[in-house]
Computed example of a mutant assay.
Amino acid sequence: MAAFSQASSCFMRLNLPSTSSFPSPSIHLPKIRTDNLHAPKIASNISLVDKITSKARVVYPDNEVMEKLYVILEAVTDRVEMHKNIGEQRNNWNSLLLTSINNITLTAATMAAITSVPGAPLEVLKLSSTFMYLAATGMLVIMNKIQPSQLAEEQRNAARLLGQLEREIKTKIEIADPTLNDVNEAMKKVLAIDRAYPLPLLGVMIEKFPAKIEPTVWWPEKQINTSPKDANGWNVELEEEMREIIRILEVKDKADYLRLGKKALKLNKVLAIAGPLLTGLGAIGSVFLGSSPWAMLVGVMGGAMASAVNSVQHGGQLGRSLSELRDVAASYSRKGNDIEEFGSKLF
Protein backbone atom coordinates (compact mmCIF):
# COMPACT_ATOMS: atom_id res chain seq x y z
CA MET A 1 0.00 0.00 0.00
CA ALA A 2 2.90 2.36 0.83
CA ALA A 3 4.45 1.74 -2.57
CA PHE A 4 1.13 2.37 -4.35
CA SER A 5 0.63 5.66 -2.48
CA GLN A 6 4.15 6.78 -3.37
CA ALA A 7 3.68 6.02 -7.03
CA SER A 8 0.41 7.91 -7.07
CA SER A 9 1.94 10.98 -5.52
CA CYS A 10 4.77 10.92 -8.03
CA PHE A 11 2.34 10.69 -10.93
CA MET A 12 0.39 13.68 -9.66
CA ARG A 13 3.56 15.75 -9.45
CA LEU A 14 4.42 15.32 -13.15
CA ASN A 15 4.28 18.56 -15.16
CA LEU A 16 2.24 17.64 -18.19
CA PRO A 17 1.69 20.16 -20.98
CA SER A 18 -1.76 21.55 -21.39
CA THR A 19 -3.98 20.33 -24.16
CA SER A 20 -4.04 23.77 -25.65
CA SER A 21 -0.41 23.42 -26.67
CA PHE A 22 -1.26 20.66 -29.15
CA PRO A 23 -2.67 21.61 -32.52
CA SER A 24 -6.26 20.64 -32.94
CA PRO A 25 -6.68 18.33 -35.94
CA SER A 26 -9.32 19.25 -38.54
CA ILE A 27 -11.67 16.35 -39.39
CA HIS A 28 -13.85 16.59 -42.54
CA LEU A 29 -16.84 14.24 -42.65
CA PRO A 30 -18.48 13.40 -46.00
CA LYS A 31 -21.93 14.81 -46.59
CA ILE A 32 -24.66 12.17 -46.65
CA ARG A 33 -27.56 12.68 -49.07
CA THR A 34 -30.87 12.03 -47.39
CA ASP A 35 -33.20 12.88 -50.23
CA ASN A 36 -33.06 9.32 -51.65
CA LEU A 37 -33.84 7.61 -48.35
CA HIS A 38 -37.41 6.35 -47.88
CA ALA A 39 -39.23 4.64 -45.04
CA PRO A 40 -39.89 0.88 -45.46
CA LYS A 41 -43.07 0.00 -47.35
CA ILE A 42 -45.50 -0.90 -44.61
CA ALA A 43 -48.27 -1.82 -47.01
CA SER A 44 -46.25 -4.61 -48.60
CA ASN A 45 -45.45 -6.02 -45.19
CA ILE A 46 -49.11 -5.94 -44.25
CA SER A 47 -50.06 -7.81 -47.43
CA LEU A 48 -47.37 -10.37 -46.69
CA VAL A 49 -48.78 -10.86 -43.20
CA ASP A 50 -52.26 -11.31 -44.68
CA LYS A 51 -51.00 -14.00 -47.05
CA ILE A 52 -49.24 -15.84 -44.25
CA THR A 53 -52.35 -15.59 -42.07
CA SER A 54 -54.60 -16.89 -44.85
CA LYS A 55 -52.25 -19.82 -45.46
CA ALA A 56 -52.23 -20.53 -41.77
CA ARG A 57 -56.02 -20.63 -41.77
CA VAL A 58 -55.97 -23.22 -44.56
CA VAL A 59 -53.32 -25.36 -42.98
CA TYR A 60 -54.77 -25.10 -39.51
CA PRO A 61 -58.60 -25.21 -39.77
CA ASP A 62 -60.97 -25.06 -36.86
CA ASN A 63 -60.44 -28.17 -34.74
CA GLU A 64 -64.09 -28.30 -33.67
CA VAL A 65 -65.31 -28.17 -37.27
CA MET A 66 -62.87 -30.89 -38.33
CA GLU A 67 -63.92 -33.08 -35.42
CA LYS A 68 -67.60 -32.77 -36.37
CA LEU A 69 -66.86 -33.51 -40.02
CA TYR A 70 -64.91 -36.63 -39.07
CA VAL A 71 -67.81 -37.81 -36.90
CA ILE A 72 -70.25 -37.30 -39.80
CA LEU A 73 -67.81 -39.01 -42.18
CA GLU A 74 -67.62 -42.03 -39.90
CA ALA A 75 -71.43 -42.22 -39.75
CA VAL A 76 -71.70 -41.93 -43.55
CA THR A 77 -69.08 -44.66 -44.08
CA ASP A 78 -70.97 -46.94 -41.70
CA ARG A 79 -74.23 -46.26 -43.52
CA VAL A 80 -72.66 -47.05 -46.90
CA GLU A 81 -71.56 -50.47 -45.66
CA MET A 82 -74.90 -51.07 -43.95
CA HIS A 83 -76.98 -50.24 -47.04
CA LYS A 84 -74.75 -52.41 -49.23
CA ASN A 85 -75.15 -55.39 -46.91
CA ILE A 86 -78.90 -54.94 -46.52
CA GLY A 87 -79.28 -54.45 -50.26
CA GLU A 88 -77.54 -57.76 -50.94
CA GLN A 89 -79.66 -59.42 -48.27
CA ARG A 90 -82.92 -58.15 -49.75
CA ASN A 91 -81.79 -59.11 -53.23
CA ASN A 92 -81.22 -62.63 -51.92
CA TRP A 93 -84.72 -62.55 -50.41
CA ASN A 94 -86.16 -61.61 -53.77
CA SER A 95 -84.31 -64.38 -55.60
CA LEU A 96 -85.20 -66.97 -52.96
CA LEU A 97 -88.88 -66.04 -52.79
CA LEU A 98 -89.26 -65.79 -56.56
CA THR A 99 -87.56 -69.13 -57.15
CA SER A 100 -89.57 -70.82 -54.40
CA ILE A 101 -92.92 -69.48 -55.58
CA ASN A 102 -92.22 -70.38 -59.20
CA ASN A 103 -91.13 -73.88 -58.22
CA ILE A 104 -94.23 -74.39 -56.09
CA THR A 105 -96.48 -73.07 -58.86
CA LEU A 106 -94.91 -75.18 -61.59
CA THR A 107 -95.01 -78.27 -59.38
CA ALA A 108 -98.71 -77.71 -58.72
CA ALA A 109 -99.33 -77.29 -62.45
CA THR A 110 -97.39 -80.49 -63.17
CA MET A 111 -99.46 -82.41 -60.63
CA ALA A 112 -102.62 -81.10 -62.25
CA ALA A 113 -101.41 -82.30 -65.65
CA ILE A 114 -100.48 -85.75 -64.29
CA THR A 115 -104.08 -86.33 -63.20
CA SER A 116 -105.00 -86.82 -66.85
CA VAL A 117 -102.77 -89.90 -67.04
CA PRO A 118 -104.79 -93.14 -66.63
CA GLY A 119 -104.14 -94.85 -63.31
CA ALA A 120 -102.73 -91.76 -61.58
CA PRO A 121 -103.68 -91.23 -57.90
CA LEU A 122 -106.29 -88.57 -58.54
CA GLU A 123 -107.15 -87.62 -54.94
CA VAL A 124 -103.55 -87.30 -53.84
CA LEU A 125 -102.55 -85.18 -56.80
CA LYS A 126 -105.68 -83.07 -56.46
CA LEU A 127 -105.06 -82.23 -52.79
CA SER A 128 -101.34 -81.66 -53.30
CA SER A 129 -101.90 -79.35 -56.25
CA THR A 130 -104.60 -77.42 -54.45
CA PHE A 131 -102.55 -76.83 -51.30
CA MET A 132 -99.48 -75.85 -53.28
CA TYR A 133 -101.48 -73.32 -55.28
CA LEU A 134 -102.91 -71.88 -52.09
CA ALA A 135 -99.45 -71.62 -50.54
CA ALA A 136 -98.11 -69.89 -53.65
CA THR A 137 -101.04 -67.46 -53.60
CA GLY A 138 -100.42 -66.47 -49.97
CA MET A 139 -96.69 -66.02 -50.55
CA LEU A 140 -97.37 -63.91 -53.63
CA VAL A 141 -99.72 -61.59 -51.74
CA ILE A 142 -97.05 -60.92 -49.11
CA MET A 143 -94.28 -60.61 -51.70
CA ASN A 144 -96.28 -58.16 -53.82
CA LYS A 145 -96.94 -56.04 -50.75
CA ILE A 146 -93.32 -55.82 -49.65
CA GLN A 147 -91.75 -55.81 -53.15
CA PRO A 148 -88.24 -57.07 -52.21
CA SER A 149 -86.93 -56.25 -55.69
CA GLN A 150 -87.73 -52.58 -55.10
CA LEU A 151 -86.26 -52.78 -51.61
CA ALA A 152 -82.96 -53.98 -53.05
CA GLU A 153 -82.98 -51.16 -55.61
CA GLU A 154 -83.64 -48.60 -52.86
CA GLN A 155 -80.62 -49.82 -50.91
CA ARG A 156 -78.44 -49.60 -54.02
CA ASN A 157 -79.52 -46.00 -54.55
CA ALA A 158 -78.93 -45.15 -50.88
CA ALA A 159 -75.44 -46.68 -50.98
CA ARG A 160 -74.64 -44.72 -54.16
CA LEU A 161 -75.80 -41.39 -52.72
CA LEU A 162 -74.05 -41.97 -49.40
CA GLY A 163 -70.86 -42.90 -51.27
CA GLN A 164 -71.10 -39.63 -53.17
CA LEU A 165 -71.54 -37.72 -49.90
CA GLU A 166 -68.59 -39.60 -48.38
CA ARG A 167 -66.30 -38.55 -51.23
CA GLU A 168 -67.54 -34.97 -50.95
CA ILE A 169 -66.74 -34.78 -47.22
CA LYS A 170 -63.30 -36.29 -47.76
CA THR A 171 -62.55 -33.71 -50.45
CA LYS A 172 -63.56 -30.85 -48.15
CA ILE A 173 -61.37 -32.21 -45.39
CA GLU A 174 -58.32 -32.68 -47.62
CA ILE A 175 -58.21 -29.67 -49.94
CA ALA A 176 -60.76 -27.15 -48.66
CA ASP A 177 -61.21 -24.98 -45.59
CA PRO A 178 -64.36 -26.48 -43.99
CA THR A 179 -66.66 -24.28 -42.00
CA LEU A 180 -69.64 -24.81 -39.74
CA ASN A 181 -71.93 -24.36 -42.76
CA ASP A 182 -70.29 -27.39 -44.39
CA VAL A 183 -70.97 -29.42 -41.25
CA ASN A 184 -74.63 -28.41 -41.18
CA GLU A 185 -75.06 -29.12 -44.90
CA ALA A 186 -73.50 -32.57 -44.61
CA MET A 187 -75.70 -33.40 -41.63
CA LYS A 188 -78.84 -32.30 -43.50
CA LYS A 189 -77.91 -34.54 -46.43
CA VAL A 190 -77.41 -37.55 -44.16
CA LEU A 191 -80.80 -37.02 -42.54
CA ALA A 192 -82.43 -36.51 -45.94
CA ILE A 193 -81.08 -39.84 -47.22
CA ASP A 194 -82.25 -41.55 -44.04
CA ARG A 195 -85.77 -40.22 -44.63
CA ALA A 196 -85.76 -41.04 -48.33
CA TYR A 197 -84.48 -44.61 -47.99
CA PRO A 198 -85.70 -46.04 -44.65
CA LEU A 199 -84.57 -49.45 -43.52
CA PRO A 200 -87.72 -50.79 -41.76
CA LEU A 201 -89.95 -52.97 -43.93
CA LEU A 202 -93.23 -51.89 -42.36
CA GLY A 203 -94.56 -48.59 -41.14
CA VAL A 204 -92.11 -46.18 -42.73
CA MET A 205 -91.02 -47.97 -45.89
CA ILE A 206 -91.55 -46.27 -49.25
CA GLU A 207 -95.01 -46.68 -50.75
CA LYS A 208 -94.80 -49.37 -53.43
CA PHE A 209 -98.00 -48.33 -55.21
CA PRO A 210 -98.24 -44.53 -54.88
CA ALA A 211 -101.46 -42.81 -55.89
CA LYS A 212 -99.60 -40.09 -57.80
CA ILE A 213 -96.40 -40.02 -59.82
CA GLU A 214 -94.31 -36.89 -59.34
CA PRO A 215 -90.61 -35.96 -59.29
CA THR A 216 -88.86 -36.91 -56.07
CA VAL A 217 -87.72 -33.90 -54.05
CA TRP A 218 -85.83 -34.97 -50.98
CA TRP A 219 -82.32 -33.47 -51.23
CA PRO A 220 -81.94 -30.37 -49.00
CA GLU A 221 -81.82 -27.01 -50.70
CA LYS A 222 -78.26 -26.11 -51.61
CA GLN A 223 -76.96 -22.82 -50.29
CA ILE A 224 -76.03 -20.12 -52.76
CA ASN A 225 -72.31 -19.87 -53.29
CA THR A 226 -71.08 -16.30 -52.78
CA SER A 227 -67.61 -16.95 -54.16
CA PRO A 228 -66.56 -15.28 -57.43
CA LYS A 229 -67.66 -16.95 -60.63
CA ASP A 230 -64.13 -17.66 -61.75
CA ALA A 231 -63.23 -19.40 -58.48
CA ASN A 232 -64.53 -22.79 -59.59
CA GLY A 233 -62.12 -23.08 -62.49
CA TRP A 234 -64.88 -23.35 -65.14
CA ASN A 235 -64.83 -21.30 -68.28
CA VAL A 236 -67.80 -19.60 -69.88
CA GLU A 237 -68.19 -22.20 -72.62
CA LEU A 238 -68.40 -25.09 -70.15
CA GLU A 239 -70.98 -23.27 -68.05
CA GLU A 240 -73.12 -22.60 -71.11
CA GLU A 241 -72.97 -26.28 -72.10
CA MET A 242 -74.05 -27.34 -68.63
CA ARG A 243 -76.97 -24.91 -68.77
CA GLU A 244 -78.07 -26.42 -72.06
CA ILE A 245 -77.88 -29.93 -70.58
CA ILE A 246 -79.99 -28.84 -67.60
CA ARG A 247 -82.50 -27.38 -70.03
CA ILE A 248 -82.66 -30.72 -71.89
CA LEU A 249 -83.23 -32.57 -68.63
CA GLU A 250 -86.09 -30.26 -67.71
CA VAL A 251 -87.79 -30.29 -71.10
CA LYS A 252 -87.35 -33.90 -72.26
CA ASP A 253 -86.17 -36.25 -69.52
CA LYS A 254 -88.48 -35.06 -66.75
CA ALA A 255 -91.60 -35.50 -68.87
CA ASP A 256 -90.34 -38.78 -70.28
CA TYR A 257 -89.58 -40.28 -66.89
CA LEU A 258 -92.94 -39.19 -65.52
CA ARG A 259 -94.69 -40.79 -68.49
CA LEU A 260 -92.71 -44.01 -68.16
CA GLY A 261 -93.15 -43.98 -64.41
CA LYS A 262 -96.93 -43.86 -64.72
CA LYS A 263 -96.87 -46.76 -67.18
CA ALA A 264 -94.54 -48.77 -64.95
CA LEU A 265 -96.80 -48.13 -61.95
CA LYS A 266 -99.88 -49.33 -63.85
CA LEU A 267 -98.02 -52.39 -65.10
CA ASN A 268 -96.78 -53.20 -61.61
CA LYS A 269 -100.30 -52.95 -60.20
CA VAL A 270 -101.68 -55.21 -62.92
CA LEU A 271 -98.95 -57.79 -62.40
CA ALA A 272 -99.35 -57.65 -58.60
CA ILE A 273 -103.03 -58.51 -58.99
CA ALA A 274 -102.58 -60.99 -61.84
CA GLY A 275 -100.05 -63.21 -60.04
CA PRO A 276 -102.21 -64.21 -57.04
CA LEU A 277 -105.29 -64.28 -59.28
CA LEU A 278 -103.72 -66.84 -61.62
CA THR A 279 -102.51 -69.05 -58.77
CA GLY A 280 -105.95 -68.79 -57.23
CA LEU A 281 -107.53 -69.94 -60.50
CA GLY A 282 -105.04 -72.81 -60.54
CA ALA A 283 -106.16 -73.79 -57.05
CA ILE A 284 -109.83 -73.72 -58.11
CA GLY A 285 -109.03 -75.83 -61.15
CA SER A 286 -107.20 -78.34 -58.96
CA VAL A 287 -110.24 -78.70 -56.71
CA PHE A 288 -112.37 -79.85 -59.65
CA LEU A 289 -109.81 -82.18 -61.19
CA GLY A 290 -111.45 -85.34 -62.52
CA SER A 291 -114.95 -83.85 -62.57
CA SER A 292 -114.55 -81.48 -65.52
CA PRO A 293 -112.26 -81.52 -68.57
CA TRP A 294 -111.67 -77.78 -68.14
CA ALA A 295 -110.37 -78.18 -64.60
CA MET A 296 -107.08 -79.69 -65.68
CA LEU A 297 -106.59 -76.98 -68.33
CA VAL A 298 -107.29 -74.19 -65.84
CA GLY A 299 -104.94 -75.75 -63.29
CA VAL A 300 -102.06 -76.14 -65.73
CA MET A 301 -102.44 -72.84 -67.56
CA GLY A 302 -102.95 -70.88 -64.35
CA GLY A 303 -99.69 -72.14 -62.88
CA ALA A 304 -97.68 -71.57 -66.06
CA MET A 305 -98.97 -68.04 -66.56
CA ALA A 306 -98.49 -67.18 -62.87
CA SER A 307 -94.82 -68.19 -63.06
CA ALA A 308 -94.30 -65.98 -66.10
CA VAL A 309 -96.03 -63.02 -64.44
CA ASN A 310 -94.02 -63.39 -61.24
CA SER A 311 -90.75 -63.56 -63.16
CA VAL A 312 -91.55 -60.35 -65.04
CA GLN A 313 -92.69 -58.48 -61.96
CA HIS A 314 -89.97 -59.40 -59.48
CA GLY A 315 -87.13 -60.61 -61.68
CA GLY A 316 -87.07 -57.97 -64.39
CA GLN A 317 -85.52 -54.61 -63.45
CA LEU A 318 -85.69 -52.06 -66.15
CA GLY A 319 -82.35 -50.34 -65.97
CA ARG A 320 -80.41 -47.81 -68.09
CA SER A 321 -77.27 -48.70 -69.97
CA LEU A 322 -74.21 -46.48 -69.55
CA SER A 323 -73.33 -44.39 -72.59
CA GLU A 324 -71.32 -41.29 -73.28
CA LEU A 325 -72.74 -37.83 -73.60
CA ARG A 326 -71.81 -36.77 -77.11
CA ASP A 327 -72.74 -33.39 -78.52
CA VAL A 328 -76.01 -33.18 -76.60
CA ALA A 329 -75.62 -29.53 -75.71
CA ALA A 330 -74.19 -28.72 -79.14
CA SER A 331 -77.06 -30.39 -80.99
CA TYR A 332 -79.60 -28.53 -78.86
CA SER A 333 -77.87 -25.22 -79.56
CA ARG A 334 -77.94 -25.87 -83.30
CA LYS A 335 -81.60 -26.91 -83.40
CA GLY A 336 -82.93 -24.26 -81.04
CA ASN A 337 -86.04 -25.25 -79.14
CA ASP A 338 -86.56 -28.48 -81.09
CA ILE A 339 -85.01 -30.94 -78.64
CA GLU A 340 -84.58 -34.48 -79.84
CA GLU A 341 -81.82 -35.76 -77.55
CA PHE A 342 -82.34 -36.99 -73.99
CA GLY A 343 -80.08 -36.12 -71.09
CA SER A 344 -80.20 -39.71 -69.87
CA LYS A 345 -77.07 -40.22 -71.95
CA LEU A 346 -75.33 -38.70 -68.97
CA PHE A 347 -76.22 -41.73 -66.91
Rank of each mutant, 00 (worst) to 15 (best):
L16K: 04
E237G: 00
T53L: 13
G233S: 08
L346T: 09
S5W: 13
L318R: 11
W234T: 06
P210E: 11
E237A: 09
K345H: 05
N85I: 06
F4Y: 10
I32M: 12
F22V: 04
F22N: 02
N63I: 12
E221T: 08
A186F: 06
P61G: 10
D230A: 01
N310K: 10
S292M: 10
K51Q: 07
L96W: 05
S292F: 00
E168I: 00
Y197G: 06
Q155P: 03
E221C: 00
L98N: 10
Q89W: 09
R13I: 00
W218V: 12
M296K: 14
A329G: 14
L260P: 04
N94D: 13
K172Q: 08
S311D: 03
I339Q: 06
E154Q: 10
V76H: 04
A255P: 02
Y70R: 12
T130D: 03
G319W: 13
K68G: 03
P148M: 11
V183S: 06
T19R: 08
V58E: 13
S9I: 02
E244Q: 12
L106D: 04
H83C: 05
V80D: 10
E207D: 15
K170C: 04
T137I: 11
K252F: 06
W219I: 12
P23V: 05
P178Y: 09
D256E: 06
G119K: 01
P228Y: 01
E174I: 03
I175H: 09
G280L: 15
A43I: 14
D194R: 11
H38S: 12
K84Y: 03
G343D: 00
G163M: 00
D62G: 06
S26L: 14
L161I: 05
V204P: 00
A211F: 11
A176C: 11
E123A: 04
N91E: 06
G203K: 03
P210G: 06
A192V: 05
G303H: 02
A272I: 11
R320H: 12
A264N: 11
S116P: 02
H28R: 15
V298Q: 04
A56L: 14
S227K: 12
Y332K: 11
R33P: 14
I52V: 14
A329K: 05
L161G: 01
W294K: 07
K126W: 01
M12Y: 13
R160Q: 13
Q317G: 01
M66H: 09
R160Y: 14
R57Y: 12
K335H: 07
P210N: 10
E81L: 12
T130S: 05
L249P: 04
Q89Y: 15
